[in-house]
Amino acid sequence: MPIRCTEEGRTLTAEVSGELDHHAARAVMEELDRQIDLTLPRTLVLDLNGLAFTDSSGIAVLLRAQRRMGQIRGTMRVVHTPDQAGKVFQAAGLERMIRFE
């Protein structure tokens, strides 16, 4: 599983690594959903430091995570976005909807 979650206080940190394409996206989405349901965090931090590649599947994963956090009145931020992923997210205008740090 290219996702590893840790909880501290009411913050859930999810480190996504490897190649996040359509092939990997479903498992990542399901694990994120499961962890959010389990921990009901106030803040979700998506750490993309180990993300070697993504395409528009990554956009769908981020938007879904953001929507899930909205449903439980939490917030989400994305940290350590690699250049390749950043370019994909920028092409989709994601910086207008999601907080990148």
Binding site: I59, A60, L63, A92
Partner: peptide
């Protein structure tokens, strides 16, 4: 068109937009 998709929630509808811009 950006955001158009007939796929499930795993799809963002941005595939052609990304191909065009890259």
């Amino acid at each position: 068109e950006p955001l158009f998709t007939t796929g499930s929630e795993e799809r963002s509808g941005m595939g052609f937009t990304i191909m065009e811009s890259f």
